[in-house]
Amino acid sequence: MYFVTHLAVGALLGRWSRLPVPWVVAGTALPDVVDKPLAMLGVVDLYHTVGHTALLAPLAVVAALLSSAGRALAVGWASHLFLDAFHIVLNGRYGDALFLGWPVVVPPDPLALPPGAFFFYYLWSPSFFLECAFWTGLGVVLLRNARADRPSGETRD
């Protein structure tokens, strides 16, 4: 799933849940902000490792218990992991969802593509079309809201 989609989902999730939106968005960014640089620098071999492991769930629970910001961060992080696993399974790469158990388990044949190469791999996949539908729906909702917010006598220039 594209990074910007995670951020948009985080913003929507924050508004819907009434959690602090910036913290939910930060939580959705966290896995990629941690893992992508580590892989690009060669510290790890995969792009789903430290930040994407569900084994950090106990830390997320502790953060959630400490404050509303911690709760929002944990919700954003969990949504990122869920959406990545969902899109991997939707694209038929079931074994790659084992990234959730890293480092205890590692996908047997991970994709391991850098972000640029992943873009071209991802085009035309089932998840790509689901993301296109998400952005189209979001665009329609935003346009409708913008029109509804315009005073009735206001016209376009």
Score class of each variant (00 low, 15 high):
L41M: 14
G14A: 05
L90F: 02
P22I: 09
G92A: 03
F3M: 01
P114D: 15
V34P: 03
V62C: 07
A117K: 15
V4W: 04
A69W: 04
C132P: 01
R15G: 10
W16E: 05
G27E: 02
W77G: 00
N145F: 12
L56R: 02
L111P: 13
K36H: 13
G95T: 09
A133W: 07
A11S: 03
L138S: 06
A11L: 06
S152A: 15
T28P: 03
V43S: 04
A29V: 05
V62F: 11
A63L: 13
P22A: 07
D32I: 07
S17M: 04
H6L: 01
G116V: 15
G137D: 09
D45Q: 15
G76A: 00
W124K: 03
R18L: 05
S127M: 08
S68C: 04
A146L: 15
A85E: 00
W23A: 10
D35M: 08
W77L: 00
W23D: 02
L81V: 02
V33F: 11
V43W: 10
V4P: 00
P110M: 11
F120Q: 08
P110V: 13
V105P: 08
M1P: 03
G139V: 05
D45G: 15
L98P: 08
P37V: 14
L66Q: 13
L46C: 14
R18M: 04
F134V: 10
E154H: 14
H87T: 10
H48P: 06
R93C: 03
L83W: 07
S17G: 03
L56E: 03
W124D: 10
L123A: 11
D149Y: 10
P115G: 10
L59Q: 06
P108I: 12
L81N: 00
D149C: 12
D45L: 14
P20N: 05
W124T: 12
A8N: 01
G101K: 05
P58T: 09
Y47I: 11
F82S: 01
G42F: 07
L138G: 14
V21H: 03
V75C: 01
N91I: 05
V43F: 11
P108C: 11
R15C: 11
G76P: 01
D96K: 05
T5V: 06
A64Y: 03
V104E: 07
L142C: 13
G27L: 02
